[in-house]
Design a protein around this nucleic acid. Structure first.
Length: 424
RNA sequence: GGAGAGAUGGCUGAGUGGUCGAAAGCGAUCGCCUGCUAAGCGAUUGUACGCCCUUUAAAGGUGUACCGCGGGUUCAAAUCCCGCUCUCUCCGCCA
């Protein structure tokens, strides 16, 4: 969320930024709520001040065994008034809070203006697209004919958008996952964490899923637990309501987790295959940084995600999301898109974002400056490193052979007991 | 699931209705002392939100709130009452 003070003082700037994001937000209502809140606050604080000082006098009088009944009577009235104002204040703050919680982040100045994914700008492309002497097949065909992906049985035991992996397929998923975790921990300086896969409402609010995107989440019935849609949620919330030492920054964490997404409103999109599932595995990188280095960290984070594809020798391109595609909490996002020959297109396989202090303010994640002793919000960043299921898709499609087999990329072979090829 | 104990500042830990934002100790920072270090001495040591002042900064002044969370009693609550959450101990069950 945005800082209320910042919003108050830069209302026209934010108004313009939200127009660029095509967000219709009633900032006049914000201004009036904010003014109302401060009016009530001043009134109630004056009353409290009176009550505090008179109550002290009462204490002194009673000690001297003198009469204080008139003061007590008067303060009874004051207290009743305070109660009234408090209720009013609570309602106003609730409204104000509800408003601020649904205002998206202010995008960075480098974010391209646009009205759809066609306006995302291509930052770079890497790799040689493989050339096939045959018509390359889509991953779900390959997966079924190799008997490593079973969509029918996934649907039977759970429903649409669930898949059973078997044999070399299950092994490939696990190999990719371990390869990525090892790369990020050994070469990129991340510390691995393993978190709960269910979280409470406070955590979901901290990273921005709640209150606005409730319908995208799976909730446990009868309990205040939500299944995580990404490890970003538990990992970012590790430091919720904490003040960190400046020397500890930047903090790099990497986590494997399954991700659960209701995919509300995606009917008809990517209905076949592994691309869009209710449950998928992901390796997620999360950073906590000082504000002045967060954009530098975003570049490094994106490079860390790209490195996975480079080592797998899968062609990709990186795009900077335009205002229309930018997520609610993000100030700037790069999507890394892997080349999928079967689909003859690039598909998102990683999304790397700088949230600046947007999540940190919601989650109250702060740090203390060493020289001044001042407390400030950290900047949080995260990026997939990578989505595992989609990486399986990319491997199958890029490494498929004329005979229907799939060659295992060399870096994955140690994770698959030396297996070089998946054959029908 | 049953029984009991507890939750106070960066940490340890006092505080059972008023002078408590909170004793004491530790730690930290600054200063003094000192050939260096240690010891010693002195000072400082939370966060948030308002208001005043100010260049919409910083600093400063001032007020309010916060002793796990939420409510209640009272002129007045860290302290009394109710509910909740979490932690610990014992018993049961369990991967």
């Amino acid at each position: 969320m945005l800082d209320i003070k910042y919003l108050r003082q830069n209302i026209e700037f934010v108004r313009k930024k939200m127009e660029d994001r095509d967000q219709k937000i009633d900032f006049d209502r914000f201004l009036s709520l904010d003014a109302k809140r401060r009016d009530i606050l001043q009134a109630v604080e004056a009353l409290r001040n009176e009550r505090n000082s008179v109550s002290k006098q009462v204490g002194k009088l009673k000690k001297k065994k003198e009469d204080a009944s008139s003061l007590i009577e008067k303060m009874g009235e004051v207290s009743a008034k305070i109660k009234e104002y408090d209720e009013n204040l609570r309602l106003t703050e609730e409204e104000l809070n509800a408003f601020v919680m649904i205002v998206p982040n202010v995008q960075h100045e480098s974010v391209p203006q646009g009205s759809g994914s066609e306006d995302n700008t291509i930052v770079r492309t890497w790799g040689e697209k493989p050339v096939f002497s045959f018509e390359p097949r889509q991953h779900y065909d390959l997966g079924e004919s190799l008997n490593i992906l079973d969509f029918a049985r996934g649907a039977k035991i759970a429903g649409a958008r669930f898949t059973v992996y078997r044999a070399a397929g299950a092994q490939l998923e696990r190999a990719i996952l371990n390869f990525m975790l090892d790369l990020h921990t050994a070469k990129h300086g991340y510390t691995e964490v393993l978190t709960p896969f269910m979280v409470n409402a406070e955590s979901m609010t901290g990273t921005g899923q709640l209150p606005k995107f409730r319908e995208d989440l799976f909730k446990i019935e009868g309990m205040e637990y939500y299944l995580i849609p990404t490890a970003e949620v538990p990992v970012t919330n590790i430091y919720r309501e904490e003040i960190l030492e400046e020397e500890k920054l930047p903090i790099y964490l990497v986590a494997y987790s399954p991700c659960f997404r209701a995919e509300a409103g995606s009917y008809g999109k990517d209905t076949r295959g592994l691309i869009r599932q209710h449950q998928f595995n992901k390796v997620e990188m999360v950073k906590f940084s000082r504000p002045e280095t967060s954009y530098e960290e975003l570049e490094k984070l994106t490079a860390d995600a790209e490195e996975v594809l480079k080592r797998l020798n899968i062609p990709f391109r990186t795009v900077s999301l335009c205002t229309a595609d930018l997520g609610f909490s993000s100030a700037k996002t790069y999507d890394v898109e892997a080349w999928l020959p079967g689909q003859n297109t690039y598909r998102e396989i990683s999304s790397c974002s700088n949230f600046e202090d947007f999540q940190a303010r919601r989650a109250s994640i702060r740090f203390r400056r060493k020289d001044s002793g001042k407390v400030e919000f950290v900047h949080t960043l995260n990026g997939s490193g990578l989505a595992v299921g989609r990486t399986v898709v990319a491997v199958l499609e890029n490494y498929q052979q004329a005979d229907g087999s799939v060659v295992i990329p060399e870096v994955l072979r140690p994770y698959m007991r030396g297996l070089e090829r998946i054959v029908p």
